[in-house]
Nucleic acid binder design. Structure first.
Lengths: 141, 141
DNA sequence: CCAACTGTAACAGATATTATTACAGTAACC
DNA sequence: GGTTACTGTAATAATATCTGTTACAGTTGG
């Protein structure tokens, strides 16, 4: 799994937690524990996918433009981590003179596609708003 | 995802395809397209988990000792890739003075645990025998 | 104009993955 | 008993991926 997914989710939850729904890349980076450049790269992708709005220039930053309760982790997953389940490595060789070796790559691929969908279904059941609720629940405990 | 999982599944399917259920690490490696040492490492783990039997010495190799129809990908996943979903990287800092930053690591972890279980459930529905069937189906097509 | 931002690219450093080499141990077979 | 063909495992090297850093152009508010 891509760790950009984690950064994206964390950032969105942080924005949802802010009263005005805004934060700069530096603020986010400090909260996430990474560097601003990485955050900007991820946020840039979130902007292209309609999660946030960007304001460049002084006093700028990112602003959440979707309802926390309407954004699911599946939306985020699709935006920047879909298909990341299968390893880059692939077994077998299509030109092999063996039933198993020659077709395993394709069959394994189908298995991972299914797994990816399964994951997406699971992520669909968790919203950014719920993540925030879980955090506050932890904090109260 | 761990690519050893792929090697393990491929190897088990290959063994299941052999009339006598046997193959050496070199034969398997050549079919999988990797090196024998890597195969031996994976098979060593499969042996410890009761999937195969090992015969050292001349004419030796690995032999399947479970029914292909009874082994699911979930069994293999548990044996050598469980928990591999979450990235090594973890966001936030437990000591942060922020509701979000301080608890995100734990909450995210819970999310990935759930995802892992979801995956396992999916893999439970696919047996090594079915994988072999899919391969023969592809070959006939 | 200046200060505080985002957007990117290019590079460096760290970590993880895969392959290779080496060698001890074991079993069949002559 | 020696030779051959295997497994088991450690150590190392090569490669790829991931993460952090630096640099700088573009944008906007004051």
């Amino acid at each position: 799994m891509n760790s950009e997914f984690i950064i994206a989710v964390h950032s969105l939850v942080l924005l949802a937690h802010r009263p005005d729904g805004m934060a700069s890349s530096e603020e986010i980076a400090s909260n996430v524990c990474t560097n601003p450049v990485r955050v900007r790269k991820v946020m840039s992708c979130l902007r292209k996918n309609g999660f946030v709005d960007t304001r460049e220039g002084s006093g700028g930053g990112y602003r959440l433009i979707r309802e926390p309760g309407d954004m699911t982790l599946a939306d985020v997953y699709r935006a920047l981590a879909a298909g990341s389940l299968a390893p880059s490595w692939c077994s077998g060789d299509p030109n092999a003179d063996c039933l198993v070796g020659s077709n395993m790559g394709e069959v394994m691929n189908a298995v991972f596609c299914g797994a990816d969908q399964q994951l997406e279904t699971y992520f669909q059941s968790i919203t950014i708003g719920q993540m925030l609720s879980r955090l506050t629940a932890k904090a109260r405990a």
